[in-house]
Design a binder for these strands. Sequence first.
DNA 1: TTTTAGTTTTAGATTTGTCTAAAATTTAAT
DNA 2: ATTAAATTTTAGACAAATCTAAAACTAAAA
Lengths: 220, 220
Amino acid sequence: MKFSASKENHLKTIFHLQSEHGLVTTNALAAALQTRPASVTDMLKKLKEQKLLIYERYKGFKLSAEGKKAAVQVIRKHRLWEYFLVKKLQFGWDEVHEIAEELEHISSRKLVDRLDAFLGFPETDPHGDPIPDSQGRIQARRQLTLSELPLNKTAQVSGIASQTTEMLELLQYNHIRLGTRLEIRKKFPFDDSLEVKVRNRPPVTISARVAKNVLVNDEN
Amino acid sequence: MKFSASKENHLKTIFHLQSEHGLVTTNALAAALQTRPASVTDMLKKLKEQKLLIYERYKGFKLSAEGKKAAVQVIRKHRLWEYFLVKKLQFGWDEVHEIAEELEHISSRKLVDRLDAFLGFPETDPHGDPIPDSQGRIQARRQLTLSELPLNKTAQVSGIASQTTEMLELLQYNHIRLGTRLEIRKKFPFDDSLEVKVRNRPPVTISARVAKNVLVNDEN
DNA sequence: TTTTAGTTTTAGATTTGTCTAAAATTTAAT
DNA sequence: ATTAAATTTTAGACAAATCTAAAACTAAAA
């Protein structure tokens, strides 16, 4: 029940990838982990041996029930630590990801559960992503990407899919953050870029690349 | 300025050993780290190359100024996390050591300083050991071991030198913890064991081994 | 002061996670 | 349906940290 930091990273990333596209490919995982396909293949074999992965060579792969459980625990740890860093240590929401990448590998189960209680069992992390509970249950979210939001319909930013520092900085610059209310004023089919309006601000232009990574509320 | 977890453990342990006996020996370090002398030698060579260690083969070794600085930062992290675990997450003082052994290797300097501020810049950890400040300064302590305490002089437990779970459990069992006021009622020269009296409790017998690891206040 | 005992280091192996380069396999294109 | 291109895997290498067994060195005892 205890995995190396590298294994935890693989599990976590596979989890994220497969929740978008059912099966995951070696190349996609290598890109996401900033590593080489050959290295991924090596790890896949180990994960398969530990029955964490359903995998046949050349075929693509996905987590087993057990692998999913392990991945969710890592995600739980990551998001709880992010919440801690922002809410208790006054970090900005755009600077916690790297630190949480380290903290998420601390192994004590008891620590995680105590931290959860200390924080008051928060439901989402500072980026709006749901925090799995100690049983591994994840609050389902119905949210769409900014790309999918209809024209002139206001919505509230509820999450950021890709949390690179660069991306978060760009959003910060455009005054788009978690909870920001906004609407799309214009869509440019040429490159799928969007003109976005935030209250009390001049409109800003957002690339399709970015828009795909900004999640907004569905209802309302 | 960033070292592997293993290197940090070596630095930290050398620091502790050399503050008792000037020079440290390969065997002593191997014993303290629960590893083999040959493994220690390998690491010593690496530390020497990084100029963290003053070392000539077969001669014993000690930390350079740089090595000491690095070691103190690790100790700072360890003790701050212990304080956090006990004061914020309600862990018992006897169960935090192992978890802090992991947390102490998280690298962000900013995290450590923010944590320090969040905790209110505590001066000692839950075992009574002083916490280095962000400049690496350590509050000097004048304390002696229980073995050295004169007969019938009351004193207050201010620290535990060896923090194995086993040792802490034994002390817990005998109702001796940080802050406990006690006095020595009898000394048995045969094995240097002690009869110790804690207020409102029947006297208990403490071995020399344990007594050497219980630190008490000097003054008062 | 020589021998013996103990300590420390070297030599060589192992494990984990990574890499490059080449081979195997699958997918896409003509 | 072949060929070409892209993907994936294997084979072999490497770095870090550890180990065992043997050699080198030091200290202690006879």
